[in-house]
Amino acid sequence: MAGQIHAAIQKIIVTRGKGNRVIENGTKTKLLLKGINASKWTSMSPDDPVMMSKVKQAAFELGVSI
């Protein structure tokens, strides 16, 4: 499998942003400060379990179900 990390990150950004581009960008920066660089992950990226765990934790902290 590939792309699950990208999909999870995008869900966090879209859910939190609620269609507001400024909030979406802010969410990307919040993820970056948590050590998750959204721009580095694509739909082809391998599903690294360590990073997936980090993304799940970030989703929990940001109140997003993934």
Binding site: R16, N20, I23, G26, T27, K30, L33, K34, E61, L62, G63
Partner: peptide
């Protein structure tokens, strides 16, 4: 700040 940023946009 991380906690605050998690709480609000």
């Amino acid at each position: 700040m991380e906690s605050l940023s998690d709480s609000t946009d």
